[in-house]
Design a protein around this nucleic acid. Structure first.
Lengths: 224, 224
DNA sequence: TCAAGAGTAAACTGAACAGTTCAGTATGCT
DNA sequence: AGCATACTGAACTGTTCAGTTTACTCTTGA
């Protein structure tokens, strides 16, 4: 066995304090906030092209003039929405809580379940969908998305696996590949179908089952 | 070891002859073909919204009137393009060639390399991107895409793994999970970045390396 | 030779949409 | 009171785009 490691209530801040900027965290103006909320909801669920500025204004309960007073144009508004949602991704990767974990399998299952649940949130899926669809038009947004989310998460896991291997809880000489594979095994057909918005929507049980299966295969390959 | 299995030149037709329909394979009309080709190229690289019917007509070297004589509208043209490209996916899954394989690892690497190279083709990525982006507007296309491609491929692999387990070349009692995991491990960050169109574009060496890593982890977990 | 079918170029229609302008209102500060 | 700031609602401009129509040109085959 790989010994009991208790990660209860550990909060890892890996890239903590590196470029932490308050991305429009101040509720500068209630109208501005209303616009941002409405636009986020619309853009992430319907995509860039399908949303008109008239609808954003109406949905935000704001006049078009006010909308254009706060944002210089549709593209900038979209970029703001995407950037602030990338910041959400980054928070997940920077502040990874591993709680109630009693052994390696439980730790992996906990991490996997939590991350997959996050990936499967409509907001996260919507962000992925819209960034992917608009990557030709907004390549810098695609890069920002990847950096803030998948990349940061992977780098965290590479370091974690390397540390666990060093302490004998895992046997993964190539930590990078092991991390890639664990994260990839969370993105099975459940995730794939969700990206395509195919019913039925995954349940919590599905999420847990995928994480457990990933943990099991991972430990078969990289357990000590 | 798992014995030498020679799969040289084996061509497996798993779902052969189940609903094989010639989806517009007849070159009915040269103009029609020109429209289909131009539209496919445009839709798959730029998305539904970004492509206008004027551009399709110009690019196909055809008048708009002719275009509308062959297709009742933009949505139908788009649906036709997507459906015919789904048929391309389905051919891959129905007619899986495993060649030059001398042992289990080589077999897995060959399959993995070939599939991943297929996934990474601009056309395939474009199809995925466009189907994903338009899944709210065309949910039936998303379902068709998933059925024809990922689902068929997965089902083939489930059966293959079950057979190899039965004959002692693998030890994967849960063939479905094993198949999910092998296919998932082909979709690592190389694939993820490619879906977002982030440079640099993956090379053949990248593809092969990902397939090899997937095969190694797979065999660590499910080798006999 | 002529009629029909297929195609073409170009103009056009109606709707949607990004973005602007402006006259007027509400709030709050000095 | 006077003034500035923020906002509204509605009209307006210019553009893009799906889809239609018209008048014209080939080609072909009976």
């Amino acid at each position: 066995m790989w010994g009991m490691i208790d990660l209860r209530s550990v909060r890892v801040h890996l890239y903590a304090m590196s470029e932490v900027r308050p991305i429009a965290c101040l509720d500068e103006s209630p109208k501005r906030r209303a616009v941002l909320e409405a636009a986020a909801q619309l853009f992430l669920s319907q995509g860039y092209g399908a949303v008109s500025m008239d609808v954003v204004a109406r949905e935000a309960g704001v006049s078009k003039a006010t909308l254009y007073a706060h944002f210089p144009g549709k593209d900038k508004l979209f970029a703001t929405i995407v950037a602030s949602n990338c910041a959400r991704l980054q928070r997940l990767a920077e502040e990874i809580p591993v709680e109630h974990a009693t052994d390696m399998r439980a730790t992996l299952v906990t991490m996997g379940t939590e991350w997959l649940a996050f990936f499967l949130q409509p907001r996260t899926l919507g962000l992925y969908r819209v960034v992917m669809a608009e990557s030709p038009r907004f390549p810098e947004l695609a890069a920002a998305f990847y950096e803030a989310g998948p990349h940061k998460l992977k780098e965290w896991m590479v370091n974690w696996i390397a540390a666990e291997t060093a302490s004998g809880h895992l046997r993964a000489p190539d930590a990078r590949t092991a991390a890639e594979h664990f994260l990839a095994m969370l993105r099975t057909s459940v995730f794939f179908r969700a990206t395509l918005d195919l019913p039925p929507a995954p349940t919590d049980a599905d999420t847990a089952q995928v994480a457990e299966a990933a943990a099991d295969t991972f430990l078969r390959a990289f357990g000590p």
